[in-house]
């Protein structure tokens, strides 16, 4: 079971890296969005520095939404998912493996890119560490809840947009706590509190996400 899990993660990561359209595109989108925002708001560095954590988080959420259809779509279309659903590995763990590889190829690169984009937005020096740690803790929740949306819409043609609409409300706590962790450098206690709550949200989505996504996949596989 452990071997099946590991090889599934390895396969998905390899597919994402080799076939492309994965993390690289998401990071590129992240970069473009962040570059677009000052063009809309104006080049005022003081203002940008003030709203930088929020801008970075929103751009990160949007970029990770873009890649949701990669989670199950291709495997559903070519029948791999049917085979996986009959394997000894429970479908819930299959979902966890796919979420893990999704996070490794999307969430993690986005988090790595975030501080560099922070430089563009005049993010103040003492906010880098809280922001990046909040993102490290929060992004798994994005992949986990995103998996539910992706699984629900897997049989819908071009379901990416619908999946985004379904999961955006569930991303709100991540956004709120993530921004609070970084922007409250006035009160360090609030920052730690926000990071703890962010961890709670991630753990909660780890409980709910795989189970719901697996149930949704089963509903969609049954024809």
């Amino acid at each position: 079971m452990k071997r099946a899990f590991v090889s599934l993660v390895r396969r998905d990561v390899a597919l994402a890296v080799q076939v492309g359209g994965g993390g690289g595109m998401a990071v590129f989108f992240f970069f473009v969005t962040v570059a677009l925002l000052p063009l809309g708001i104006g080049p005022n560095l003081n203002l940008l520095g003030q709203i930088a954590p929020g801008l970075l988080w929103v751009a990160l959420l949007l970029s990770s939404l873009l890649t949701l259809d990669r989670l199950f779509q291709a495997d559903f279309e070519d029948g791999t998912l049917d085979v996986l659903s009959m394997a000894t590995l429970p479908l819930e763990l299959t979902v966890v493996a796919k979420v893990l590889s999704h996070w490794l190829t999307t969430g993690l690169p986005l988090v790595v890119a975030a501080p560099f984009l922070g430089l563009l937005l005049n993010l103040s020096g003492d906010q880098f560490l809280p922001l990046v740690s909040a993102m490290l803790i929060g992004t798994p929740a994005l992949s986990l809840m995103g998996a539910v949306g992706a699984a629900l819409t897997v049989s819908v043609r071009r379901g990416g947009l619908l999946a985004s609409l379904l999961v955006i409300p569930f991303y709100i706590p991540v956004l709120i706590f993530g921004v609070a962790a970084a922007s409250s450098n006035v009160m360090p206690a609030v920052s730690t509190q926000a990071i703890a709550l962010l961890g709670a949200v991630t753990l909660m989505s780890f409980v709910v996400g795989p189970w719901a996504a697996a149930a949704a996949l089963r509903a969609n596989l049954k024809t």
């Binding site: 629900l152 709100i172 706590p173 709120i176 709910v208 949704a216």
Partner: peptide
Amino acid sequence: AAAILALVGSINVPIVHYSVVW
């Protein structure tokens, strides 16, 4: 599918609500 979404939503509604309050 819709039933699963509604249930996941009902678990998340309190979390979303209290995060907004916070």
